[in-house]
Amino acid sequence: MRKISDLFKKELKVINIGLSSFREGPEEVGVKVVQVDWRPPAASDEETMDALKKLLGSKK
């Protein structure tokens, strides 16, 4: 719970992954937004995707 209450007290700082039009609202009220030029993973086939997930799993 505490983290949400903390958020309410802080200045919002936004990372926007996807539609760049979603920058506009926050930026209009002076909030900093970093836009991500996102692209889907190169793993378009199941085998690579599964393998990638296994490998990324150890990131935690």
């Binding site: 190169a42 793993a43 690579t48 599964d50 393998a51 990638l52």
Partner: peptide, 17 residues
């Protein structure tokens, strides 16, 4: 080429799982 990295990822997962 992305292909070589994908192949390596698959081989890596195979070797280490």
């Amino acid at each position: 080429p992305m292909e070589v990295f994908k192949k390596a990822v698959v081989a890596f997962a195979k070797k280490y799982s």
